[in-house]
Design a protein around this nucleic acid. Sequence first.
DNA 1: GAAATTTAATCAGGGCACTGACTATTTCGC
DNA 2: GCGAAATAGTCAGTGCCCTGATTAAATTTC
Lengths: 154, 154
Amino acid sequence: MAAVDLTSHPGHLARRLQQAHYLLWNTMVSEEITSPQFAVLNALVAEPGLDQRTVGERVGLDRSTIAEVISRLGRRGLLDKVRDPQDGRRFLLALTEDGLRTHRKLAVRTARMNQVFLSPLSAEEQTLFLELIRRVSDAAEGLRNPGEPLVARP
Amino acid sequence: MAAVDLTSHPGHLARRLQQAHYLLWNTMVSEEITSPQFAVLNALVAEPGLDQRTVGERVGLDRSTIAEVISRLGRRGLLDKVRDPQDGRRFLLALTEDGLRTHRKLAVRTARMNQVFLSPLSAEEQTLFLELIRRVSDAAEGLRNPGEPLVARP
DNA sequence: GAAATTTAATCAGGGCACTGACTATTTCGC
DNA sequence: GCGAAATAGTCAGTGCCCTGATTAAATTTC
């Protein structure tokens, strides 16, 4: 009797959006390398030699998840993992030749996919859309490390 | 060298948005019942006696995933599952008293959470935001069952 | 300089999401 | 009516995502 309209719930819509993206990625970019995996490759192209935790921070993955993703990329031979001689806790990461090649190939396809994904929106709407998502998720991010209240500050 | 800026990639932003939502849900709504589980409860409040596949369709979950979610809700005693006497393949689903009570309680908290989640945006931006997400995911949905091209139709 | 704290990574455990293969039941075609 | 095709659900396998506990290495504190 008191059912709610989920199409006005941002969380539900966010989930559907991600599913839609997953589908399109699989058909237009790769069935082997996932979008989070590409994000990791990309982070290591930008900054080779990062440690695992920092890569996770760059792409928005927690320590457990980043460990799994990196282990899969290692198994595929796309990156190497070496103990930091300066700090025995860390692993330093860098792409292999194969990893670099894969990143180059997928970067092109990803750009095409993004175009198709956003094509239902006009150019101005696309810009706005990305900005709105960023603002909402950045704000919620502030909850993770407290001190920055989300709604009001006295 | 040829690294890409992920903050302009809708897929990456969609993932971050969902993570942000997950976090907020956990702190403001429930640590036991997840957002997809609430969506299933809600679908059964709206239409009691639906079968499993149709519930999945309503909330946007494939047959495998909906089976898991429903099994978990069943274990928690929030819904009942009966064979359809008319069609021996189907299971008919309905909420228990506990399921109804849980839905009522969470519906209130969910409304509050949505407000907080969207609070970084102005009222007009909020409406626009939801509409843009809907349009993008609806369009990509059309890829699932072909016949409706995503970009152009001749 | 040894004890206490912090930090990087792992592991166990739970949940979401998809594909592809399989079973059981119903419906369609003839 | 009976065999073929379609449909509902399950199961195995892979991957993402989180929390909480644990281990090992560094840093801080006294």
